[in-house]
Design a binder for these strands. Sequence first.
DNA 1: CTGAAAGCGCTTACAG
DNA 2: CTGAAAGCGCTTACAG
Lengths: 325, 325
Amino acid sequence: MKLTMKEIADLAGVSKTTVSQILNDKGERFSEETRQRVLKIVEDYRYAPNYFASNLVKNKSGLIGIIVPSIKEPFASTLITKIQANLTEAGFHLMTIESSGEEREEIALFERYCQISVEAILCFTATKFSEKFIEKSCYHGIPIVFVDQGINESQYGHVYLNEYDTVRKAMDDLIQKKHQTIGLIKENQESYTFPNRTKAYFDALNENHLVVDPSIIVETDFSIDAGYHAAKQIAQNPNVSAIFCCDDTLALGGYQGIYDLGLKVNEDIEIIGFDGIEMLQHVRPQIRTLQTPFTEFANVLSEKILQAINSPNQKQEDCYLKMIF
Amino acid sequence: MKLTMKEIADLAGVSKTTVSQILNDKGERFSEETRQRVLKIVEDYRYAPNYFASNLVKNKSGLIGIIVPSIKEPFASTLITKIQANLTEAGFHLMTIESSGEEREEIALFERYCQISVEAILCFTATKFSEKFIEKSCYHGIPIVFVDQGINESQYGHVYLNEYDTVRKAMDDLIQKKHQTIGLIKENQESYTFPNRTKAYFDALNENHLVVDPSIIVETDFSIDAGYHAAKQIAQNPNVSAIFCCDDTLALGGYQGIYDLGLKVNEDIEIIGFDGIEMLQHVRPQIRTLQTPFTEFANVLSEKILQAINSPNQKQEDCYLKMIF
DNA sequence: CTGAAAGCGCTTACAG
DNA sequence: CTGAAAGCGCTTACAG
């Protein structure tokens, strides 16, 4: 059914060496006439070299594995879509698997990707890996690029956002608009943590001599539902006129919570989120959010992955990106 | 760096035949003691057979390729997430690439997947393929399962929803609730078409002796933005009190359009969508939609793919699923 | 300008 | 119960 290189060679009246060399663009030494004859036949029969045979020899798979706690999480999935486009363009094949975020599961996936010889792994995680075999951002020689707020030692650097400054700006803006009682929905310790965002909230209140009221600061899971209940709780306090959410997922839940209480979002209580996920653009009234530069972020990560593949032992710099507010 | 089977064999004091047989569960004939010794060493060294070498021999890649016009399209991506979970469970590696929906691009991706020897392709498409080499749902011997409203000849059957009945139910419900002037936002010919949904709309109006008014029937692109503008246009007619949207993407846009006109969604104009994508649950007020049984749908597709891999020449039945309203 | 031969790391039929 | 050998379909150093 599928032709072999030997058969193509026979059809063209040359050796398979010749076919191989021409297909791999190492065919300068052959006469143009031979080249054309071989290429024509390859074209006619839609021949493609057996993927496994060539990779066995070249020891390159062209595969890149992505690990992400949940594909539904919009921050990661927005990045993944863009990275996928970049790297597909560059000739790689990407695959994505959900890890559920647990270390054991994640390591099992490193193993799994290792078995199919991916050339690099991109790992979205909130796990600080304890396992000693994840050294120098690699697993059995396969480079791993982390997206993890810098919690893992990384040979390939991390990408940081100017979270603190941006949240300060947003808070200052709220305070200038006479908001005196501003709630906070923050993540708990179970998953990602955003210390800079939280710190900016507290600093803004303190420096403006506003009261920090623990009853309108809710620490919760990282889900829409959690944001929903948190907002409802904070809204118990009739003075609250704004809520800063450490993440858009929480903000989206907060929006629903405020609405379902019969309050008017933004008029009664303004919600501010963080990340600028697409979904937020679609709710009404629109809620403000601090915008991660997703395209740049994805480009930087794509670049890091390519570099890691090409020079696994070369250290890469951290990178700092600017949010938009 | 990475150990070879020969080295493992040497460490265990056996031949590589033995190691191979044991790892491939064909090792009944070996003494339990040998088995254990080999497995221990494999474990200790975290050895895994070279993926390319074994596949070269077995001629099986364990790869499945998905093609989808856009990963952002929630109908497809909801299914893909679930299918990915099913098939990953079954030991396959899934990859997804966006096609932009054009036939040329889609064929290029068949080619691409063919080159890496995927065992099957799942293709979400609105293209009726003209190319003769897509025969019997396969491309160069690789089975293709289509999700395409039955527009392509399919060896492996299609999945159909009882769209007509469900839309009729929804329309009848609206009409019973005294809605007299109901708009329609439907897709144009550029992409998927949903003739049954549209027909149900017309039939419902006719059988209830309501006027079919072309000025409140908008045919448009398949995007949130298109739904947005369509709804604004329909709302020009002050009698309109409901709009049926042939798809949730259009409904989400419609929701925004109504809101931005200063009207109250559901109170002034009720919106009804189709599919039950997750995003719709998050907007307020909530808008009604007809619910595709995504989990069942994904299970059926997963099953079709597995069967197509195991028996590429065996014809599969069409499948009919029930919507929820 | 071209090809024969070795080798990549496995699996499997075969022999013992 | 176990292993030597052939072969999967390529690529690449080497020889001419």
